[in-house]
Write a protein that binds this DNA or RNA. Structure first.
Length: 281
DNA sequence: CATTTCACCTGGTGGC
DNA sequence: TGCCACCAGGTGAAAT
């Protein structure tokens, strides 16, 4: 479900509410798919650790965790491990009270010292949970560039010489991290570029329009708390509002907001792709 | 190596 | 009401 704006919204919400809290125990469901780190190792690693901060990188939520060293408890606590959450298509990360009924498809429950719980719910089980011990492993880093901070030159270089469709390139996480189907379609609309255009054939001016459209769309979506198309909610269970601003995504046959031409839907890279045949060239 | 296709899952919706 | 086809925010392995 979640792309950069949704993941950013959730990470901010969890950070705001859980920073400084301590994980006292962790429970995991018996389904194997969501656990990149084996359940037992994950539970053991999480228990007793303090949530120092939570942030987003690409479509991943990274919780920086620490332990209090008994010798110098007054010193600033450094992260010694990370809990990394990828939400897949339907994943949710929710801060709840312990009494809250447990939703179907709940795959992880972290109980916290303040009595609250952090729950991971994921119907389709495309999400992934990973625990990293930073003494043994490097810190997590998304492979692709951040679309909110990349500059014009670096952005253009990503697509140079590539024959695949620009939409497929936008979805490639090792090029740009965080762009998914909604924001690929929306940013191509605002840049006036057809999704099937070969990435390497776009002019410098088009690429710059695309970079700015992408940044604008992502920033506005973050301001509106993301897009709630079917079931996305933030860490507090609240829906986002950016779906009301969509110009093409899931608007097949509806009039273009700019020129009233019906929005067309095609299949590209296996994904439903929406564009205005008149505004996009 | 670059690119495309498909499998992995469950649930909602709309047609008949 | 039931059944079925199709669609859905993602990714990584296998095939080309």
């Amino acid at each position: 479900m979640p792309e950069l704006p949704e993941v950013e919204t959730i990470a901010r919400g969890v950070d705001q509410r859980l920073r400084g809290d301590r994980i006292v125990g962790a429970w995991f469901s018996s389904y194997p798919q969501p656990f990149k780190t084996p359940r037992a190792r994950q539970a053991k690693g999480l228990a007793g650790r303090i949530i120092l901060s939570v942030h987003r990188t690409g479509k991943h939520i990274v919780c920086e965790l620490g332990s209090v060293a008994p010798a110098n408890a007054s010193a600033a606590i450094r992260p010694d491990s990370q809990w990394i959450v990828h939400l897949g298509m339907t994943g949710r990360l929710l801060v709840t009270t312990p009494g809250e009924p447990v939703a179907a498809h709940t795959h992880a429950r972290l109980s916290l010292l303040t009595g609250r719980e952090l729950r991971f719910v994921d119907a389709r089980r495309f999400g992934r949970l990973e625990f990293r011990d930073l003494v043994r492993t490097r810190a997590f880093d998304a492979p692709g560039a951040e679309p909110l901070s990349i500059g014009p030159g670096e952005f253009a270089a990503l697509f140079r010489g590539r024959k695949l469709a620009i939409k497929a390139a936008l979805l490639n996480q090792s090029l740009l991290a965080g762009v998914g189907n909604i924001y690929a379609d929306e940013s191509l609309f605002h840049a006036g570029i057809r999704p099937r255009r070969a990435a390497g054939r776009l002019t410098r001016a088009e690429l710059e329009r695309l970079r700015q459209a992408l940044r604008k769309v992502l920033q506005q979506a973050i301001r509106l708390g993301g897009s709630s198309v079917s079931d996305y909610v933030d860490a507090n269970g609240a829906r986002g509002f950016f779906q009301l601003e969509h110009c093409v995504y899931l608007r097949t046959g509806e009039p273009c907001r700019r020129c009233a031409t019906p929005i067309r839907r095609i299949l590209l890279a296996g994904r439903g792709t929406h564009f205005c045949p008149r505004c996009q060239h």
